[in-house]
Design a protein around this nucleic acid. Structure first.
Lengths: 205, 205
DNA sequence: GTCTATAACTCGATAGAC
DNA sequence: GTCTATCGAGTTATAGAC
């Protein structure tokens, strides 16, 4: 267990790095900027982290830690229906886009495309973040399993939902307009409505 | 019109930069590497381009130029059915993933997430690249309009298809496995099959 | 654990001869 | 249009005192 003083500096570095990597990207963010904004000196950073990449790994771990308590739980507290929970989750990402005038995106998606085969450890943690996200969507779909057609592949559907979200965010950022994201989600909604309609038909038989 | 010698060096710089930006990203690629690989000196680069960003703009213009003759035309020559043309296009991206062991992605998508609100000119050209791509898909959907339900929003559907493609590529790269891309495309296929089935039902009435 | 100073290097970009 | 040489700023990372 680390002494009291340690957690604070270490956490501040992680939080500032999380924010700056999100806003500017990993390569575009220099350690000098992170240090300045966190009010920390170079020596302290290298006391906690062996390298810039180790700091990135800590940031990616943090994202995994906060997914459920910070992102999912507030949504699930407000929305009970499992299908609507998925669209409420998409709504949170929409809100993030709108609030930043479509400049922000998905922090994990950004890093996923910036960090390629180099940075294998970071790559692994990015995959784990996607895994958690897709798993959360998957659980919603499983809860609604009896309303969906029997043979629908819920794992694949969760993958499409994540893909549509990331791809929608990407296009909205490119155009600096919310329309592409909304269009993607609207078509996803149409698709799932059709699945639910067929599921309802099945139960009526 | 530039003299004969000019096009060659300029083109070589664009082609090398295109490849390296694709493989490593914009920030991660130094001019020194581009110069070395192109066999060109710093002075020549700055004779043709004012800055690294101007070189990027030329790369993005090149991508727009080659979309139809290099990417779309070969597909359209082989596949006549407009709906199948869309899936054949997705198949080409699949091939790119498989051939690189899921390390490569979409060059435009990569740059879209790496370059944010800074680089406004590049941002604009990235949007234009997406626009061309979506327009191509849109034209396929328009050709198949009479087989789809009347009220389907083909522009929005084209946006979802692009989103699913980009998001599928992103996940496959993260996992270094083709499965997420395949799952996304499979669900897209299921959705479009349902739309075609409804369209067929409409015509039978 | 934190501080200052700095090493060692790479970056994008420029100058000026040819 | 191409060459060599290099500038100045920025980069990640380290050394060593406190």
């Amino acid at each position: 267990m680390p002494p009291k003083g340690e957690r604070k500096t270490r956490d501040r570095l992680i939080e500032v790095a999380m924010e700056l990597f999100y806003q500017q990207g990993f390569h575009a963010t220099g350690l000098a900027q992170i240090l300045k904004q966190a009010g920390v000196n170079s020596g302290s950073l290298y006391h906690f982290f062996d390298s810039k990449e180790e700091l990135l790994l800590a940031v990616l771990d943090r994202y995994r830690e906060i997914l459920r308590p910070v992102l999912l739980q507030p949504i699930f507290d407000q929305v009970a229906d499992p299908v609507e929970r998925i669209f409420a989750l998409l709504g949170v990402y929409r809100q993030g886009l709108v609030m930043t005038d479509c400049a922000a995106g998905c922090p994990i998606g950004n890093l996923a495309l910036e960090l390629r085969e180099f940075h294998p450890k970071a790559h692994q943690k990015i995959a784990e973040n996607f895994e958690d996200w897709r798993q959360a969507v998957r659980e919603c779909l499983d809860e609604a399993a009896d309303r969906l057609p029997e043979r629908v592949d819920r794992e694949a559907l969760a993958t499409l939902i994540l893909a549509a979200m990331e791809g929608g965010v990407m296009q909205s950022r490119a155009y600096r307009a919310i329309d592409p994201f909304d269009a993607s989600v609207a078509m996803l909604r149409d698709y799932i409505d059709r699945l639910l309609a067929e599921g309802a038909g099945r139960r009526r038989e």
